[in-house]
């Protein structure tokens, strides 16, 4: 029957794709806990590689978490008020500004990194500090925060809600805290999870901006892929998965929730 043949074909493609995405990930998980990958699982399981990774790269992991947190704080401080400002001020200026800050979504990180390096590369204290990497991360993640919050704000009747609060005596500042922020919360949450997830995994910009003393988690990963034995590289990847997968799941859940509200 034609109908079920089409269905079988679809299922086949779906399962094959699934295998393509899942198998190497499982391989890396297995390789990270196998005593000797070339002999196979029969060589037994071990946590030795993970311990070694921790010894070698703990500072990279902690640095990434720290930068992700700082990046979150920065995007919250810059992005949430900005999304509110854009929502309250819909005009050509806001559209141009939104388009402009979204450039890092389109322009490859490599190009942005080159631009940053050429302008600030000679500013010694800045170039070598972790804030230089942070700037790159904020640049890349900020549009996600702004858009996520803006999407939620632009579907509610913000102007009237604010007029309501104002008629009850609330100042601009109080309205922002009492009305805007709580009602934008689903968008803020989705944006925050996206920012943290992307910051922890960011490589393109970071590889160009980092210094030998400032290796983030993905930079360390690239380093281990190039110079360490397969088991250590795999174990490190496993640790990365353990950090990133829950974040990704939370991020997708929060984004879907925010989209439902914004729809």
């Amino acid at each position: 029957m034609e109908y079920s043949r089409a269905k079988a074909l679809q299922l086949g493609v779906t399962l094959l794709t699934c295998a393509f995405l899942l198998v190497p990930a499982l391989q890396s998980v297995l390789a990270g806990v196998t005593r000797n990958y070339f002999i196979g699982i029969s060589s037994g399981f071990t946590l030795r590689w993970i311990a070694e990774v921790w010894e070698l790269y703990a500072h990279s992991i902690m640095l990434s978490i720290g930068i992700a947190f700082a990046c979150l704080v920065s995007t919250l401080v810059i992005g949430v008020p900005a999304a509110y400002g854009l929502a309250r001020n819909p005009g050509w200026f806001s559209r141009v500004l939104e388009e402009f800050i979204s450039l890092p979504l389109a322009v490859p990180g490599l190009a942005l990194a080159l631009a940053l390096l050429q302008l600030y590369g000679s500013v010694k204290g800045f170039r070598t500090s972790w804030t230089f990497v942070l700037v790159g991360h904020v640049l890349y993640t900020l549009p996600f925060m702004v858009r996520s919050v803006l999407a939620v704000l632009s579907v509610m009747d913000l102007k009237t809600l604010e007029e309501g609060a104002a008629s009850l005596g609330a100042t601009s500042w109080r309205r922002f805290w009492d009305i805007v922020v709580p009602n934008a919360m689903p968008g803020i949450l989705a944006g925050a999870l996206t920012v943290v997830t992307l910051s922890i995994g960011e490589f393109n910009l970071t590889w160009m901006l980092h210094t030998p003393y400032l290796k983030t988690l993905p930079v360390g990963l690239a380093d281990s892929y190039a110079s360490m034995r397969l088991e250590i590289a795999s174990a490190y990847t496993l640790i990365f998965f353990i950090i990133i997968v829950p974040l990704l799941m939370a991020m997708q859940w929060a984004s879907q929730r925010a989209q439902r509200i914004a729809a």
């Binding site: 809600l161 309501g164 009602n183």
Partner: peptide, 10 residues
Amino acid sequence: FQSYALFPNM
């Protein structure tokens, strides 16, 4: 207000 403008977060 015409749409009441009640605060949905409260």
